[in-house]
Amino acid sequence: MNKPQLFGTFTLLSLLFLLLAMGAYHLYSQYQQTHFSCEALLVIDKDDAELALAFNFILQGNDGIATLKGNLRQGDKTTGVSRKSYFTFNQKEGLYHLQSTSTVTTPADNSKTEDIARYLPLFYLQPGLKFDFTVYPVSEAGYVFSTGQVPSFYCARK
């Protein structure tokens, strides 16, 4: 093989490798946007009540689970919150479109759904509801979730 043929072969193989690497990176990026889990601590103070929850989000492909555990204090009464909200989702450019498919209240939960609904979107409490949010990656550490122009909470990568 002469030098021009060797150079041409090397160039062609280099371009092929570059295209394969770019494709692999694109697939990995897409995978990362639809396969992750993170945890957030959320405290909502409103009127004479405080809802303190640990959120755990798990997204796997087109399905997800939001686990809520914590306490609801209303005046001098405190109840436990322990629920799971299952959902399907699709995402495009960081905007996640969710639809709740089922909700499960564990035996550790003794809060009324109506009470929790004063502080959280019904999406987490009832099946068949839609909810949209935007996820902004913050380095490898986690994500900022937003339901509009204002960030809602920070979710640390697990």
Rank of each mutant, 00 (worst) to 15 (best):
Q30L: 12
Y25T: 14
L41V: 09
Y25W: 11
Y31T: 00
L42M: 12
L20I: 01
V43Y: 01
L20E: 01
L27I: 08
D48C: 00
Y31G: 04
A21N: 01
Q32V: 15
A21W: 04
L20Y: 04
A40E: 05
S37F: 15
Q33R: 14
D47R: 12
F36E: 01
L18C: 11
Q30G: 07
K46M: 03
L42H: 10
V43E: 10
Y31H: 03
D48S: 04
S29G: 12
H26I: 05
Y25K: 14
K46L: 06
D48L: 08
D48A: 00
Q30Y: 06
Q33K: 15
S37V: 11
V43F: 05
G23C: 11
C38I: 09
F36I: 01
E39F: 10
L42W: 15
L41D: 15
L42E: 14
F36M: 01
L18Y: 09
S29Y: 07
H26E: 02
L18P: 13
D47E: 08
L41E: 11
K46C: 02
A40Y: 11
A21S: 02
L18G: 12
H35S: 08
Y31S: 03
E39L: 06
L27A: 13
D47M: 05
D47W: 10
Y31L: 01
Q33M: 07
Q33C: 07
L19M: 03
D45M: 05
Y28I: 04
S29C: 14
L42C: 11
H35L: 08
A21E: 03
Q30A: 02
L27S: 06
E39R: 11
Y25R: 11
L19V: 04
H26K: 08
G23F: 11
D45H: 04
G23K: 05
L27R: 10
L41Q: 14
L18F: 13
V43M: 09
Q30W: 09
F36L: 00
Y25D: 05
L42V: 09
G23R: 02
H35V: 10
L20H: 00
Q33V: 08
K46H: 03
